[in-house]
């Protein structure tokens, strides 16, 4: 079959800010050339000939930057060179797309690792007094932007650490917390973001607690 190659349209955008949050984890802020809705993703590449990868936008929708949060995958094609990108250099970015979008209603947000990114965008985009956020990580340093979440959410921001203890941390797994929680609300939505195993396991736990499956909205990092 002879076909012309059709790719996602990408445009060059300039890196305006780069922060290494902790070893191997970066927040990159690019110039904002389009509007987006919190929860959307962009496709990003450094080479027009290579397939782009998807990243949740981590910045607020009113901010004048497009932020992404990522950790380096040592065998990955994009994240090692992306971490080497310097302010002023360009990357190729798609228009925003996707519909992992919070409807503004009371909800529980559940994330692991860099799966916190869409919630970081949501919390900076609109008021969120009716939200509880559960964030799971192996180590303390992996609770990215915890100060911001603490400021915005107070006691509704719960951090679960599986290998370390520390101030404000709940030791253990967020799945254990959910399993032991007898009063999970059935009338709210549950937004899950992270690796597929977390999403699948948490979804099964919620279903076992009689949460209707149509109240569980998931975004999987792949």
């Amino acid at each position: 079959m002879t076909t012309e190659r059709k790719r996602i349209g990408l445009q060059a955008v300039t890196l305006e800010k780069k922060v290494e949050i902790t070893t191997g984890v970066y927040y990159l802020a690019f110039e904002k050339t389009f509007d987006f809705v919190a929860g959307q993703v962009i496709a990003l590449s450094l080479d027009a000939e290579k397939d782009p990868r998807l990243y949740s936008i981590a910045s607020g929708s009113q901010s004048n930057e497009i932020g992404i949060l990522f950790d380096i995958h040592p065998d990955g094609e994009l994240t090692p060179p992306l971490s080497q990108l310097e302010v002023g250099q360009k990357a190729l970015m798609s228009m925003p797309f996707g519909k992992f979008i919070w409807d503004g209603e009371p909800a529980m947000w559940i994330a692991t690792g860099t799966g916190i990114a869409p919630f970081l965008s949501m919390i900076q985009s609109q008021e969120n007094s009716n939200i509880t956020l559960l964030h799971g990580a192996k180590r303390q340093e992996q609770f990215y932007f915890q100060t911001l979440f603490e400021d915005k959410m107070g006691t509704n921001y719960l951090r679960f650490c599986t290998t370390e203890s520390g101030k404000g941390l709940i030791e253990g797994r967020l799945t254990t917390y959910l399993a032991n929680h007898d009063t999970l609300r059935k009338d709210i939505k549950y937004y899950l973001c992270g690796n597929s195993q977390m999403v699948v396991d948490v979804r099964q736990l919620l279903l076992a607690k009689d949460i209707p499956f149509d109240h569980i909205i998931a975004e999987i990092y792949f």
């Binding site: 690796n195 597929s196 195993q197 699948v200 499956f213 999987i220 990092y221």
Partner: peptide, 16 residues
């Protein structure tokens, strides 16, 4: 395994 986590699939249950 699989990363896609479809609600109806056993493979999805084992993660990737």
């Amino acid at each position: 395994g699989c990363k896609m986590g479809c609600l109806f699939c056993m493979t999805g249950r084992q993660g990737f």
